[in-house]
Design a binder for these strands. Structure first.
Lengths: 137, 137
DNA sequence: GCTTGACCTGTGTCTTAGGCACAGGTCTAA
DNA sequence: TTAGACCTGTGCCTAAGACACAGGTCAAGC
């Protein structure tokens, strides 16, 4: 199987496959013409990688997991601990986005009824510089 | 004012100030010793930049805004249109994170009561490979 | 004047997870 | 054999700074 073939069969891009290959997550054999040749084992490996990415694991996490399982060990404990970390991160980012979203949409509606002003020596745009966040009671 | 001085006075890092300077958002004079010297005008510029960043504008947006206002034009229309774009993006990312968060926490709780398994030829980690998303009714 | 040490500087490299460009190779049809 | 379509690997690019590092600056002490 060639790069594009593999990628399409799992609904991803050739660049993604190449990327994972560069990182050593996939280890294709070298074909006669210098092209990389992916076996069925690589297909299931890629399938695993894509599932894990989809669940929020970082590529570096997946590398760890694959290493662990290549040593014949169960990767389950590692998987549980990693997802706990990632979930915490996601939660933080989520809260940050929530706050940002609120700020932005509050700014947007506030600005709709404010007039334009030309810049001055110490003011670039009064909309931004005078933005006041409406506190939730 | 030197880099670190400026940075601290506005609660940011020297690296951030250097970054904006590299991009041309700040234009310090060159001090005798080769150090960059920031005037009061730069202080208010940086203050503006930080406010805008805080509101979700990209650095490239801010560059545009500053250019506009340097030509003496009012940046307000541009500001309104840019934040609309950014808010839409933020909304998309927000929804994506919401979904991801749900998936992750569902996985986490599901996995807590599942046993460890050793890897096989076509299975790296059954937790991930057999993860089933619980559909919301 | 000289030295020590603390702090500061600019420059260059690194980060994520691939996307994109490009020069060249391969393969099929004519 | 040649044209054209498609494919390949390699290398550079992204956002917004963080970090490392070799060297410069400055005040205190001798």
């Amino acid at each position: 199987m060639k790069v594009t073939e593999l990628a399409k069969s799992l609904g991803t891009t050739a660049d993604t496959v190449r990327y994972y290959t560069r990182l050593g997550l996939l280890k294709p054999a070298k074909s006669v013409n210098g092209y990389k040749s992916y076996s069925n084992k690589e297909v299931s490996r890629l399938k695993f990688i894509l599932s894990a990415r989809n669940l929020g694991f970082a590529v570096a996490d997946i590398k760890q997991i694959l290493n662990e399982s290549e040593d014949g060990k169960s990767a389950c404990p590692l998987v549980r601990s990693l997802i706990k970390e990632r979930l915490e991160e996601t939660e933080k980012q989520f809260q940050a986005m929530l706050a940002l979203r609120g700020k932005m949409s509050s700014a947007l509606s506030q600005w709709e009824e404010m007039e334009d002003k030309a810049p001055t020596a110490n003011m670039v745009c009064h909309l931004i510089e005078n933005f006041e966040q409406i506190k939730k009671a």
